[in-house]
């Protein structure tokens, strides 16, 4: 289970980093979302992965660490709010700057393509 979990986090992070390095705002937002999923899973696993373990003492023989669950919950809420803000900001940047590039201007290659059309 640990291997699968680790691979999953690694794959999500790789996708997130790849998308974040793209030039347009939408892939960047998606990349950040992926990265925050990876972070949340990773944070969750910091309390060790246990099967059939309740977070409350005395209910089962094995119990899970409740703190990472609380941390993940906080991280999810914050990440969600931040992503929502970023989406709105990206839309506003599209309107203000006239394109959806992260740098606010079209790269040279696309400019020349546009002119030749």
């Amino acid at each position: 289970m640990e291997t699968l979990f680790a691979c999953c986090i690694g794959f999500l992070t790789a996708c997130g980093v790849f998308l974040m390095l793209r030039g347009r705002t939408f892939p960047v937002v998606l990349g950040l979302t992926m990265l925050s999923y990876a972070v949340n899973l990773f944070l969750f696993s910091s309390g060790r992965l246990t099967l059939r373990g309740a977070a409350v003492l005395g209910t089962t023989e094995q119990y899970a660490d409740p703190l990472p669950q609380a941390l993940v919950l906080t991280a999810i809420v914050i990440g969600f709010a931040m992503t929502a803000f970023l989406v709105i900001l990206a839309i506003r940047a599209r309107a203000d700057l006239g394109n959806d590039h992260v740098d606010g201007k079209l790269p040279e290659s696309e400019l020349s393509k546009k002119e030749s059309r």
């Binding site: 950040l32 940047a93 740098d103």
Partner: peptide, 19 residues
């Protein structure tokens, strides 16, 4: 707006690394 996009994306990445 342009500065804010960079600032927000960078800080969100920073938050992910923090976590």
């Amino acid at each position: 707006t342009k500065a804010a996009v960079h600032y927000v994306v960078l800080n969100l990445t920073g938050s992910a690394i923090f976590l």
